[in-house]
Design a protein around this nucleic acid. Sequence first.
RNA 1: GCGGCGGUGCCGGAGCGGUCAAACGGGAUGGGCUUAGGACCCAUUAGCUUAGUGCUUACGCAGGUUCGAAUCCUGUCCGCCGCACCA
Length: 990
Amino acid sequence: MVTPNNAEFLQNIQSKWQKKWQQARSFHADANPYHKKKFFLTFPYPYINGLPHVGHLFTIMRVEAFARYKRLQGFNVLFPQGWHATGSPIVDAAQRVREGEEKQLKILRDCGVPEADISKFAEPEHWISYFVPEYRKDIQSLGLSIDWRREFFTTELNPHYNKFVQWQFSILKKKGYVKKGKFPVVWDPKNNCPVPDHSRIEGEGETPQEFLLVKHKLKNGTSIVTATLRPDTILGVTNLYINPDVMYVRAKVDEEDWIISKKVAKALADQDKKVTVIEEVQGSSLIGQTVLEFSGLSVPILPAFFVQEQFGTGIVHSVPSDSADDLIALDDLKKDTALCQKYRLDMAMVKAVEPISVLDVPGFSPIPARDVLTQLGIKSQHDRQKLEKAKDILYKKAFYEGKVNKLYQKARFKGLSQDYAGQPVEKAKEGIKHDILNSEFGDVYYQLTGRVVSRSMMECVVRIVEDQWFLDYGDPVWKKLAHDALNNLTLYPEKARAQFTYVIDWLHQWACTRETGLGTRLPWDEKWLIESLSDSTVYMAYYTIVHLLQKIDVRNVNGALFDYVFLDENTGKLLVDKKDADAMRREFDYWYPVDFRNSGKDLIQNHLTFYLFNHTAIFHKDKWPKGIGVNGWVTVDGSKMSKSLGNVIPVREMVKTYSADAARITILTGGEGMDDPNWDTEFARSIIPKLEQFYTLARDVAAAKDMTTAKDRAAAKGTAAGETSTGKTSTDGGRYTMKPIDLWALSNLHQIIHDATALMEETSFRSAIQKIFFDLQRLLRWYLRRTKNSPNTTVIKELVDAQAVMLSPFTPHLCEEIWSMLGKKGLACEASWPVAQQDKIDEQANAAENLVQETAADIQSVLKLLDIQKPASIALFVSPAWKYQLFAIVRKQLDTTRNPAEVLAAVMKNAPAELRSHGQDISKLIPKLVQGGLPPMILPQEKELAALRDAVDFLSAEAGCPVQIASADEASEPKAKQAQPGKVAIVVKQ
RNA sequence: GCGGCGGUGCCGGAGCGGUCAAACGGGAUGGGCUUAGGACCCAUUAGCUUAGUGCUUACGCAGGUUCGAAUCCUGUCCGCCGCACCA
C-alpha cells in the first residue's frame, strides 16, 4: 500500500463537520406540503454479514453524491438506509462458528471482533446486533447524508417490518401473483434438507438439470426408459443402445413398468415418483428385442459399450443422424460379426438400420453426424476425446442454426400437436418436448449438472419439493405492467434499457419461499420463509413511515393500516390513532414514488426487475418507480476484486489512510455509466495535495480583501472612475477594471457550470468531477497566471464560491471548511447550486483568449527554436483584412460543397474585386481550408487586435521583451503576410 | 450459444463525421522555485522535419460509405457482466 502524502489535514476537519451536520439535522427529511420539490433516493440495503468495503462504496457514493446535489438544487431530499438480514448466509455462518470452523473465525477476527466475543456469533441474532452498528459507523465516517432516524432491519426479528412484508404478500396472493407448484432442489438425503450453494463442500454452482425421459415400449408393455436433452431429434431414433454388462432394474414407477439403471430408480423416488424395484435385469438379456417408439416405428435394441451406467438412465436411444456416438457405434456393430453372433443378432437386421435425417443444418449433409465423423477422422467409439468434440460441434450447430426438417409434419405423426417442419431447432425443441410429455412416451427427470457434496459429507441428489410457492413473473398481464413501469422511468444510464426489457420478458416463475434461514413467514403457510430477494422488492415504501410506525405497539399494526397508508383504502378497522395513521399516510404520499434507486448492474436480472414487477402489483400507478441507476463492478487498481488477491479494501481502512473526502472523490472518479469503476490507489494518493491546494487558494482569496497590486490600482485610476474598458461597472474593492481576461474567466466558469449541471443530472459523476475540479482548477491557474496574480476580486470569488458548492457533493467536509472560511452564512450542504448564466458565456471571449494563449505559446517555441534567450523586441501581426473576408466566404461555401475546385470557383465569383486581386494566394489557401476545416470561430480583425493589445503586458512578460502589435495590412515585413485569422505572425528582433 | 457492455497513446480514460497526434488525470523526462523536498510552477512525452510549420504512421483486425472516419456501415477477433431461485 502506498502511504499517502498527508491526509491529516482532511481527516482533522472530518468529524467537526459531521458533528455540525448532525447538530443541524441537515439530513433529517420530513414531508413538507409547502415544499413541493422532493427527491427520494435509495440503494439496496446491504446484507450484514460483514463490513463495507471498496466494492460497496461506489454504489453508496453514487446515491450520496446525487442526494447532496439534489439538496443543493433546492429539493427536499430523503436518503434513508436499512439493513438486510433475510436469507441463509448468516444462519450458515453462525452454524460454522458453532462448529468452530477456522476460516469463518478468521473472517470475524479480520472484521475486528475481539477473541472473547467470537463465540457470540454462534447466534444469528448476534450478527445483526454486531454488524448493524459497525457497518453504520463505517459508512457514517464517510460523511453520508443519510436520515438515520429511518433505519431498520429485516426478518421476523423486527416485528413491524415482518408485518409489512406479510401485508405485501397477502396482496400478491390476493391478486393471484403467488402460486403453488413443484420445484426441484439440491437435497441432502442424510439431513433431509435443501443444500444452498454456499453450504456445499463440493459443487458450488451446480444445479438440477431437467432431462426428458422417453419411454420405449416392449411388447409386454414394459418401458425401456432413456433420458435426453434433445427432444428435437426424437423422430430420428433408429434403435436403443444398452450396455450388455450392466445390471439394470425393472421397477414399478407409479403405475408403470420401467427398465432403468439402479441409480435412476433411487433418484426417481425423490422426484415425486413412487418407485418399487421388482427385479434386476441383465443388459444382455434385452438385446435383440424391439420396442415401439413415439414415432410409431418399431426399433431394435442393440449392444454398445460407450453407454455408461451412471449417466442418464444408463440406456441410450440412438439418433445416428445427429449423434456421432450413436453413428460410430452403429458402424462398429455392422462390422462386428462376432459380437452380433454373441447376442444372436440377425446381421441383416443390423445392417438394415440406417440413420433417419431429421434436421437441416446449414453447411451439413442430411446426416450431420456422418460429416463430423469424417471431418474429425473418428475411427471407433473408443475415440472418446474426438467424440466429445464432435458432440459439441453438432449440438451447437444444430441447436442454434438448424431447422427441423419436413419429417415433422403434423399429418405424419399423430403425436405432434403442430407442424414443426421448417422451424428453427431452438424453437421447435420446446414444442416437441411438450408433445412428448403429453403423450404416453414422455416424463421428466432431474439430474445434477455436477457432483455436489454437503457439509454432512453426503452426496446430494435432486428432490422435487411439493407445495413450493412461486411469484409468477411469467404472467403476461404482469409482464405488461412491468413494461409499462419501465417505459415510464428514467434510467441512469439510458443504455441499460435493452437489458431490462430483455429481463422482463425472460423472467418466469420465481420460487419465493425457503425452508431455512432468517426471514418473514408466509402469512398463510407458516412453514415457509419468504426468500431474501422476494422480501425486498417494495420496502422503500417502508422507509417513508418507519420512524413513525416503529413507535407504535406492534399489536396494533394490521393489514388495514397498511392498506390505508399505502393504498388509500379503508379495508378494516384501524387499531391505531387515526392521527398517527394520517401522519404516516402523509409521509408516504409525499415521498413516494422513489425517484432514484441505484445498484450494481448484476441486479438488473433479479432485484431491480422484481422491484418493478412488485411495485406494479401493489401500488397505484403514480407510485411506481421514477428512476433506476445501475453501475459496474468495482475493480482495484485494474484488477478484479477478490479475497485471494487481498485487494478488498475495507471502508474504515480507506478513511484512515486517505480521509473521507479523498476516498469519496477517488471512487467516483473511477468510472461511470455501465463501465466497471476502478479504485485507483495512485489517484487517491495524488488527489490529497490537490484538495489541499484548493483550500490554500480559497484561503488566500478569503484573506486578501484586495488581491490587486498597488500598480494595478494606480493604472486603474487612469481610467474614468468606475468605468472599465468594456463599459462595465466594477463594484468591489479589488482590481477596478473588468478586463477581457476577466470576462473570459467568467465565460468559462459559466460554461463549466452549465456542463457540470447537465452531467450531474444524469449522474455522470466522473465527468462532472472532471469539469468541477480539474477543468476549473486549470481555469483558475491560467487566470492567475494571465493576470499575474492580480485577478479581479469579484471574479476570483465567484470562481471559488462556485467551486466550493459544486464540489461539495464529492468532498463535503473540505467544502464546508472552505465555505466557512469564506465567511459564508450557513452550511455548504444547504447552499445553492450555481446557475449557469447564458449571457455570460461568450464565445468571442474564448476565441480571443485562445489567440492570446496560442500566441504566447508560439512565441516561446520560436524563441526556443532560434535559441534566443534575450530577444530585443517582438512584433506581432494579425492577418491582413482580405483573409478575414476570404474565410467568411469560404465558410459559407463549405455548407454547399466540399470540392476545393468548386469552392475556389465560387469564391472567385462572389468575391469583391479587392479580394480577387489576391487570386494566387487564394488558390493556394483554399485546398487547405477545405481539407483541414476552419476554426470554430473567427474573430474580426479589430477584435483580434484588441485582444492582443489587452494582453500586451502579459505577452511581454512571457516573452521577456517589449511586444508590438500591428495589422499585416500596413506592414512591410514579408513574414507578416503569413498571418491568418486566428493565427498571428511573429517577427523576432535580436 | 443467448442477452448486455466494451476494445483509444507508457497507464487510467474522454472523444463518437472536419477545430484530432487525440481532453483531463497518472507515470516518466527536463527545467524553475527552494536549505531540501514525496509540495508547488513550467515544458516535453508516435516518428521525421521546420522560425511558431509540414509530412508519415496511429484509435483491436479486415473491408466499405464519404471530398474527409477514432467517430458511420458490414464482417471478424478479443475482453468483461449475467443466464436464476443466490445475497
